[in-house]
């Protein structure tokens, strides 16, 4: 890692462990994970199911706390933060994209996209205007009044990407973003991420088990049995 990147560290993980107590048994899902992500990186995390990548994603996304270890996001140690502060960080720093899109079924596309801004306290009118602009950016401007069930899977995922982007987060956290889509539509979503990465320097972390998707990322991390193995992307 060169000097300019270390100046610019967005995520810093040091010895992250996560244990779950299931009945009498204690299950260690993450066994000490350390890595850093610089602002502007596009990276993939691969791993079989049960390797701990979902747990890692929850911790990265501030939905869960590690049992041990230190996690800093933009220099802020999240171990010190209470629940409302974590919510604020999620809102301002992180944009989630899920495999199942997870749009709210009763809201139309524009209202879905505006939601993060509304939780930030922006006036509704302004939130809607920015949501509209973001839908244009992902090519969904003409569908802003459609509800999720009136959209195809690919279209829903585009709206979900717009929702993740609308708050101008530091990090897009995409959990199997193409997993529910056929490969052509999946690639369209991937193209949006690539474009964001190249044109705007957005940091994107994609969790996937599709090696075709992973191969398009500059950096690849592989999870195996609660541990992380760094790979050169080209070697994947």
């Amino acid at each position: 890692m060169n000097a300019s990147l270390s100046q610019n560290r967005l995520l810093e993980l040091e010895g992250i462990r996560k244990e779950f107590q299931i009945g009498p048994a204690r299950l260690e899902i993450l066994k000490g994970i350390s890595f850093e992500v610089a602002a502007g990186e596009l990276l993939a995390v691969m791993g079989t199911s049960g390797s701990g990548k979902s747990t890692l994603m929850n911790i990265l996304g501030l939905l869960d706390r590690p049992s041990a270890g230190r996690y800093r996001i933009a220099g802020e140690d999240i171990g010190q933060l209470d629940e409302p502060s974590l919510a604020r960080l999620r809102n301002e720093r992180i944009g989630f994209v899920f495999q199942q899109f997870n749009l709210l079924p009763r809201l139309n596309a524009r209202d879905n996209v505006a939601l993060p801004l509304q939780y930030r306290g922006l006036p509704r009118r302004e939130a809607l205007a920015r949501a509209r602009a973001m839908l244009d950016a992902v090519g969904m401007g003409d569908r802003d009044h459609h509800r999720p069930n009136e959209l195809s899977g690919g279209q829903q995922q585009r709206v979900a990407v717009a929702r993740a982007l609308v708050g101008e987060p530091s990090l897009i956290l995409a959990d199997e973003p193409t997993g529910a889509l056929d490969s052509r539509v999946g690639q369209e979503i991937m193209d949006i991420f690539l474009r964001l990465h190249h044109e705007q320097g957005t940091t994107v972390l994609i969790i996937t088990h599709d090696s075709g998707i992973a191969a398009q990322c500059a950096r690849l991390l592989r999870m195996r049995d609660g541990l992380l193995v760094e790979h050169d992307a080209l070697a994947a």
Binding site: L63, E83, A87, R90, N91, N102, Y119, R120
Partner: peptide, 16 residues
Amino acid sequence: RREIGVRLAIGARRRD
């Protein structure tokens, strides 16, 4: 529940 999960993920506080 799922909707609530999504809201929390995109930055709703529990009090919201």
